[in-house]
Design a binder for these strands. Structure first.
Length: 230
DNA sequence: TGCCAGGCCGGGT
DNA sequence: ACCCGGCATGGC
């Protein structure tokens, strides 16, 4: 019925053909995903990697070990990721929650429902929609779609979204387009990041080489804007 | 060499 | 309900 939904499905199929499986999130453990999700807030992933490396070298990339670090110790380790004072605080807030509610145990946390966990995460200072959903999808394997800056920009550039579309509305569009399949949501968002990094930067966009051009028509635009795509 | 990066919060209209 | 400044580093 909805051409929007159909577009989203076709885009996924095409991107998967072009790029293949992405094997996201780039981390060795679910806990590393959780930490990375907080550290990457408005931050280049390259800088996050340095911080994660520091934490690993200090044997601090575990819930208890990290929580027991002093604030200044934690700040120093994550400094390369920027906003380090805020992020140290946010990590501590999350760790306290993770340890007190789930004993720092990912399996235990996964037992609870997606909606309940999302509310809990959003209630924490420093965890917003994207961070919460990244944790839900990539650390806890919950079927929820992550909307990030890349996703927004790509949808907007290709006339599948408007600037004023909010997080939930964009997310709902993906949710209503597919079955609740966390593997699928995982792969799809990772593919969009691939497109975003390589073809859809604000400066130096390589739009002419973008794989999504396969779906363009009438001079590189889709037929309708999102607002008219019921 | 400025501009940018996988946000979020809090205070002010 | 929006709007905006602050937060900070390293890469290109």
């Amino acid at each position: 019925m909805s051409s929007s939904r159909q577009f989203l499905k076709e885009i996924y199929s095409h991107l998967f053909e072009v790029f293949g499986a992405q094997k996201w999130w780039p981390a060795e453990t679910p806990f590393e995903v959780m930490v990375g999700a907080i550290l990457t807030q408005n931050t280049n992933w390259k800088n996050v990697e340095k911080a994660l490396q520091n934490l690993k070298q200090s044997a601090a990339l575990q819930p208890n070990a990290m929580y027991q670090l002093s604030t200044s110790e934690l700040e120093l380790l994550i400094q390369p990721s920027g906003f380090f004072r805020q992020k140290a605080k946010r990590l501590k807030t999350f760790l306290k929650y993770f340890l007190e509610e789930y004993e720092g145990d990912v399996a235990l946390m996964k037992e609870k429902s997606t909606s309940a966990l999302r509310e809990e995460l959003l209630a924490l200072k420093g965890i917003g929609p994207e961070t919460a959903d990244s944790i839900l999808l990539y650390a806890l394997e919950k079927p929820i779609f992550v909307i990030d800056a890349y996703t927004k920009r790509i949808l907007f550039r290709h006339y599948l979204a408007l600037e004023e579309d909010d997080y939930e509305s964009l997310q709902d569009r993906f949710h209503s387009s597919f079955a609740d399949d966390h593997v699928y949501f995982n792969e799809y968002h990772a593919l969009l990041v691939q497109v975003g990094k390589n073809y859809c930067r604000p400066k130096n966009p390589k739009c002419s080489e973008c794989p999504l051009n396969a779906f363009n028509w009438n001079g590189g635009t889709y037929q309708r804007l999102s607002s008219s795509m019921e």
